[in-house]
């Protein structure tokens, strides 16, 4: 199959770029015919159900939270505040996802990009999976010989990769609750420290990759951290700004990195 069908597709379209987080640019071009199928109505219709499941899941949990709030003495206004904070805080990162997704759409088609970025995985993960799928067929991703069948392997690889997380969490997440209860041992104070320690640990790791050399991401991280600390101090006197602190700190960090 490798490359054999390529001669049928003479017209090729140069796809501008997909820029990775580290600024590295890669040239990707996809055959017209293949992209036409990738953007067809059928692709839209079959990508939609999983996106709808993601929406249905949060609606179910949203409703359940209102049922459960009484048991833990939470008032509806606190729930509303939490929901609102989640929405406000997510605006900045979602703009970033939006911009990255438009790049991804040009290489895997809009329906697939929509489906893959609405569920587990992120642009670099999906691009890696799609590329590995083409590799398995002995074809360059989006290059010569990238025909429908190779695209099918790309789609398969993205799907089977996402399913790794979905299945393991679906089948075993509730076991983790038992582990937490055991580790916590009913000591609520220790459980609180454990949660904070886990958070510091995760974000220590996430930052560590940006702190190895002084460059744009380094500046963004350091300035982001300092502005967050300052903003939270300010918020002690002006509680109204508290829910915007993370969004503002992120923008300040980004702005500083741009100036650098």
């Amino acid at each position: 199959m490798n490359g054999a069908g390529a001669s049928e597709y003479i017209s090729r379209r140069g796809i501008p770029f997909y820029k990775r987080g580290n600024g590295e640019e890669r040239e990707v071009s996809v055959l017209d015919e293949v992209l036409k199928v990738a953007n067809s109505m059928g692709a839209w219709l079959t990508a939609a159900p999983i996106v709808i499941i993601a929406l249905v899941q949060v609606l179910l949990y949203y409703r359940q939270i209102y049922h459960a709030a009484d048991a833990v003495n939470l008032k509806p206004e606190q729930l509303r505040k939490a929901f609102h904070t989640g929405m406000v805080t997510s605006i900045g990162p979602v703009v970033a996802i939006f911009i990255i997704m438009v790049g991804l759409m040009s290489v895997i088609g809009a329906p697939m990009a929509w489906m893959r970025l609405a569920v587990i995985g992120a642009a670099p993960t999906e691009l890696t999976a799609a590329t590995l799928g083409a590799d398995a067929m002995g074809v360059k991703f989006g290059g010569e010989g990238y025909n429908l069948q190779v695209m099918a392997v790309s789609w398969w690889t993205m799907a089977i990769n996402g399913v790794g997380w979905l299945l393991l969490v679906g089948l075993f997440a509730h076991k983790l609750e038992d582990v937490r209860e055991k580790v916590g041992g009913g000591d609520t104070k220790w459980l609180g420290i454990l949660s904070v320690a886990a958070m510091i640990g995760v974000f220590g790791y996430l930052n560590s990759r940006n702190l190895t050399k002084i460059n744009g991401p380094f500046v963004a991280a350091v300035v982001g951290a300092v502005s967050m600390i300052v903003l939270l101090q300010v918020a002690k006197k002006m509680p109204k700004i508290k829910e915007y602190t993370l969004g503002i700190a992120m923008l300040v960090g980004m702005f500083a990195a741009m100036l650098y």
């Binding site: 820029k19 987080g21 600024g23 900045g92 990162p93 703009v95 970033a96 911009i99 990255i100 790049g103 420290i193 904070v196 320690a197 958070m199 510091i200 974000f203 220590g204 996430l206 930052n207 940006n210 744009g216 991401p217 380094f218 963004a220 991280a221 350091v222 300035v223 982001g224 951290a225 300092v226 502005s227 967050m228 600390i229 939270l232 993370l246 700190a249 992120m250 923008l251 300040v252 960090g253 980004m254 702005f255 990195a257 741009m258």
Partner: peptide, 23 residues
């Protein structure tokens, strides 16, 4: 470009700052 490259580092830094203050 700024959103593409710096959103993640900036937000990682900010959240780390938030929790580093705690402990």
């Amino acid at each position: 470009d700024a959103f593409r490259q710096y959103t993640a580092p900036a937000i990682f830094g900010a959240v780390f700052g938030q929790f580093a203050m705690r402990q």
